[in-house]
């Protein structure tokens, strides 16, 4: 199912399929946020933002507004 990172539940994994290159910073790409790589939502900060993710074995946090711009395909369990 196609969706975006902000729709993940805690513990859920997905594969990154696409994102808007104009709004995604190069730094995030360099941290491993690339089409084909896996992403898992580990934790949501109090008040719902930012999100704590495991992207391609990198542990990092991004804000909701960025997460909304990254498309993913859910991995079926």
């Amino acid at each position: 199912m196609q969706t975006t990172i902000d729709q993940l539940r805690i513990g859920q994994s997905a594969t990154i399929t696409d994102f808007d290159i104009e709004v995604i910073p190069l730094k995030l790409i360099e941290m491993g946020c690339l089409p084909g790589n896996s992403v898992e939502l580990l934790q949501i900060a109090p008040f719902g933002d930012p999100l704590f993710l495991n992207i391609n074995d990198s542990y990092l946090a991004i804000r909701l507004e960025t997460a909304r711009k990254i498309q993913i395909e859910l991995i079926q369990e």
Partner: peptide, 10 residues
């Protein structure tokens, strides 16, 4: 133009 990436080290 905001964005925010923070590494969460071990």
């Amino acid at each position: 133009k905001t964005f925010f990436v923070v590494e969460m080290p071990n």
